[in-house]
Amino acid sequence: MSTLPYRSALIIGAGSGISGSLTRRLRAENIPVVIAARNVGKLSALVDETGAIALPVDASDASQTAALFAETDKRIGAPEIVIYNASGRVRGAIAELDAAEVERAVAVSAFGAFHAVQQAARRMIPAAKGAILLTGATAGVKGFALSAPFAMGKFALRGLAQSAARELTPKGIHVAHFVIDGAVRSGQRADPPDAPDSTLDPDAIAQTYIDVLRQQRSAWAWEIELRPWVEKF
């Protein structure tokens, strides 16, 4: 039996990192999980391991997001947890960036999150219950050189989270934004031998998401910052 107050979950922008760790934690709580990405083939190992359901989506497309939620409704019921992990990134000097690529990056990071939050709210408001978790980054509070599109998208995501929290929290819906302030550990990005825990462990990140989902409504957090102990503020 689950120790969480929710019965179903949808993760958009799924992959092997944070989303993979979240999928494992939620499935360990016996919560059915749909994981969605543009390329569902990359999710096959996670599906085999956890029994999650993989569905395709271009998160920046409103009609595809609506279809994803409708299919999720059929497969596991209306999702009571919605986690948005998708983001778009294009690097380069402002004077040289391709405007179409910038538009695409911002559409994935920010406009796609709006589509997801809107679809989630339409289901959660009548039930007066639900949790919407949005994965942000350092770029959402500090824009770096040569990374304007990522900063634009993540700043917008943080604004969406803050606005949605103020609107939806009184309706019984927990909205939380997570500032992932540092590099996330992976098979391609391991800690140096002389600097243990200098990257964020995705399992530790997932644990924090789970802890937020367990929060009692008299003390809900709307934003959490996570950083390795060596990361500078």
Rank of each mutant, 00 (worst) to 15 (best):
L157D: 07
S198L: 11
E80I: 06
G77I: 12
E223A: 02
D181H: 14
F233E: 04
L213Y: 00
L133A: 09
W222N: 06
G153E: 13
T208D: 01
S8E: 13
Y84S: 05
A66G: 10
G77D: 11
Q64W: 08
V230F: 13
D58P: 08
F155T: 02
P196M: 02
R189K: 08
A195S: 14
F69S: 09
I173C: 05
D203K: 03
P202N: 04
V47E: 15
E103A: 14
G17T: 01
G153Y: 13
A156S: 12
A54F: 07
L160A: 01
K42F: 14
D73C: 06
R123Y: 14
R189G: 07
F111E: 11
G51Y: 08
G140T: 04
S21G: 08
Q162S: 04
L168R: 01
G92Q: 03
L200H: 04
A190F: 09
V40S: 05
P56W: 10
P202D: 05
A219T: 03
V90Q: 00
F150N: 10
V33E: 14
L46P: 04
W222K: 11
L168T: 00
A54Q: 12
D61A: 09
A164G: 08
Q162G: 11
A219S: 08
P79L: 12
H115M: 07
S19C: 08
D197V: 05
P79I: 14
K154G: 05
A93S: 15
R214G: 00
E223K: 00
Q216N: 03
G159L: 11
P196T: 02
K129M: 07
L168P: 00
L22K: 00
L134M: 07
A206D: 01
K171A: 13
G51A: 05
R91S: 11
R123N: 13
F233K: 06
V106Y: 06
V117K: 11
L26D: 00
A95H: 14
A151S: 15
A107V: 01
P193S: 14
E29M: 04
A127E: 09
R122T: 12
I18T: 12
P56C: 07
R227I: 01
A66Q: 15
P32G: 07
A120S: 15
S163D: 04
R89Y: 09
A105T: 00
G130N: 12
L43K: 07
P202H: 02
R217K: 13
G17C: 04
M152V: 06
T138M: 14
G182L: 15
